[in-house]
């Protein structure tokens, strides 16, 4: 059976809510590419931070629905209109998740800590002046501050708190967010990482990164930062070459 994802036709919309775009599609493609692993992972709790239209969380649910029963799905967004639109999109597909209007995971972080097995995030990542971050309305969907990192850098510690021992994170980034630095930062917290999808569009060079807690990572700490960064750029250029061939 081919796996289903959300259908654009059924995605609800509103002028103040981010519409599914290349980044959303790339993230869902990453989940599709990793679907077999996700099924084997057998998550009990999955969560999307910044669910916007609901396209991604709905796709994740549809992707796992028949294979992994009894999963608890959660979605948050700071935009009070977005959470409503997320709910509508879920309903239109006949699936359900618990939706909360929250800044990253406000109110959830205490009781949910250490319980989430999969987190997906397509954050506001566009480099912008700092004052645009978190403004009301649609700008907060993309405005990422300096290097597009302001919101990402706030999300990562929360993700680290929420993820279970076997937890995974899928994160959308641009090459201009210095993803190698993000991976290095996460490595210091004990996470291994890899690029699941690389995609260049006219405007941006998107990378979907996957992180997981790596038991061996402690012993790998000896790898120096420059060596790690060299590894990262090598695997990135390999990926990009492959696409052009």
């Amino acid at each position: 059976m081919s796996s289903r994802i959300a259908s654009i036709r059924l995605v609800s919309s509103h002028r103040e809510v981010y519409e599914p775009c290349d980044d959303s599609f790339a993230l869902v493609d990453a989940l599709l590419a990793d679907r077999t692993n996700l099924i084997e992972h057998n998550p009990k709790v999955c969560m999307e931070i910044g669910s916007g239209s609901g396209y991604v969380i709905t796709s994740l649910i549809l992707l796992l629905k028949n294979e992994v029963p009894g999963v608890h799905y959660l979605a948050t967004d700071t935009n009070p209109i977005a959470v409503r639109v997320t709910k509508e999109t879920l309903e239109a597909h006949g699936v359900d998740a618990d939706v909360v209007c929250a800044d990253i995971a406000t109110g959830l972080d205490k009781r949910l800590a250490g319980s989430v097995d999969v987190i997906v995030v397509n954050p506001p990542y566009v480099p912008t002046p700092e004052y645009e971050v978190g403004m009301e309305g649609i700008a907060s969907a993309w405005a990422g501050g300096e290097n597009g990192r302001t919101v990402i850098d706030k999300i990562l510690p929360v993700v680290d708190l929420l993820l279970s021992d076997k937890g995974w994170l899928y994160l959308v980034t641009l090459t201009s967010n210095f993803p190698e630095e993000i991976c290095l930062m996460m490595r210091k917290k004990g996470y291994a990482s890899r690029i699941v999808v690389q995609r260049s569009t006219e405007e941006e060079n998107l990378l979907i990164l996957k992180f997981w807690r790596d038991q061996d990572e402690v012993s790998h700490k000896e790898i120096s930062s420059p060596t790690f960064l060299a590894h990262f750029s090598r695997s990135l250029s390999l990926l990009m070459e492959k696409r052009w061939r």
Partner: peptide, 13 residues
């Protein structure tokens, strides 16, 4: 009080 509208709790501070 944190309001719940259309089934969605608003936990923003």
């Amino acid at each position: 009080k944190f309001s719940v509208n259309k089934g969605i709790p608003n936990m923003l501070l």
